[in-house]
């Protein structure tokens, strides 16, 4: 029997109310970091259990301990300061990192959290990193003379972090690069930086890319130096598959089959149709199934329902096609 169609997730899950409240209290000096960490662990354990109960294959820790994917790493690295508030959209604000000196790592950033999450399950948990291009693009830069110098320095740090995750036992390492496709003329630089990150790694490497004009950078996207591309498909009606059709690359694809920006829960049949479309282009051994992107903006119930429909659709498809 053919094997394949493993289920996974992109990264973030919604934070429970008690955690949001606690983060707020820490910001106002009413709770200490140690207490916050206990709550973050509790929330992480909740999401590991949810994924196990659903029967997912490759798990994520849900990023309960992160405010923002770029700020989290920069706060725990050398060379960064944190800015005042800037607006992201609507009434949402966040603080951006500012490179004020050479950036680097004095110690592992994400390894402890990975170890904690992995200790809760026998299923593999992905090590989750933010890629150098996105880190630089979403930071202010007051130190480096060029974007390139900034990005390459970051790539070296992210590589060290990936090596530490690998040493700790991570079988899967995902390097998120949502910004990578926003500037076609810098795609070459972004790919070079990602190459520095993944160089010599034995772990299975993944990059998640979203929100871009993929068509214009597709040739470079498909050649990014990782084992697997994780792409959103549901919210573009699987248009991207047309581009992937006939490509000679031996990459794996992790295919997003539920839209994370919509409250509506897709039907099992709808998701199954998406999976079939994916199977027209990729053999099941090289096709993973997941939501389009991190689920953190959904409610708890919506996130679980979206994971449930994903898992059910995969299970039924496997049965119908005799995939193990």
């Amino acid at each position: 029997m053919t094997r394949g169609l493993l289920t996974t997730a992109v990264g973030s899950y919604p934070k429970p109310d008690y955690l949001l409240k606690a983060r707020n209290q820490v910001a106002r000096g009413k709770l200490d970091n140690k207490d916050l960490q206990e709550l973050e662990k509790r929330a992480t354990a909740h999401w590991i259990k949810v994924q196990e109960d659903l029967g997912m294959d490759v798990l994520v820790d849900g990023e309960m301990y992160r405010g923002d994917m770029v700020t989290y790493f920069s706060e725990n690295m050398e060379g960064f300061a944190i800015s005042g508030l800037v607006r992201s959209y609507g009434n949402r604000y966040y603080r951006k990192p500012i490179a004020v000196a050479p950036v680097g790592r004095s110690r592992p950033v994400s390894v402890e959290w990975w170890q904690y999450a992995q200790s809760l399950t026998d299923k593999p948990v992905k090590g989750m990193l933010t890629g150098p291009y996105t880190m630089a693009d979403w930071s202010f830069n007051e130190y480096y003379p060029s974007r390139e110098a900034f990005i390459i320095d970051l790539a070296r740090s992210v590589h060290e972090e990936a090596l530490d995750l690998e040493r700790a036992g991570a079988e899967y390492i995902q390097i998120d690069e949502p910004a990578v496709s926003t500037r076609p003329d810098e795609m070459e630089l972004a790919a070079r930086a990602l190459g520095i990150v993944t160089k010599g790694l034995r772990a299975f490497t993944i990059t998640h890319v979203c929100y871009g004009d993929f068509a214009s950078v597709f040739d470079q996207l498909i050649r990014l130096p990782v084992d697997m591309l994780d792409l959103e498909m549901a919210n573009s009606n699987y248009e991207l598959l047309k581009l992937l059709k006939g490509n000679s690359s031996d990459k794996y694809l992790s295919m997003g089959v539920v839209d994370v920006h919509n409250h509506v829960i897709e039907t099992v049949d709808h998701v199954k149709r998406g999976i079939r479309l994916g199977l027209e282009v990729f053999p099941p051994e090289r096709l993973y199934i997941d939501p389009d992107c991190g689920l953190k903006t959904r409610t708890d119930e919506e996130a679980i329902a979206k994971l449930q429909v994903t898992v059910t659709a995969v299970r039924e498809t496997k049965k119908e096609l005799g995939i193990e």
């Binding site: 609507g90 979403w138 920006h261």
Partner: peptide, 14 residues
């Protein structure tokens, strides 16, 4: 309607 990235920035518009 929904949020879309505003050009090559890390901000979004409806």
């Amino acid at each position: 309607t929904g949020l879309i990235r505003y050009f090559d920035t890390n901000t979004y518009y409806r």
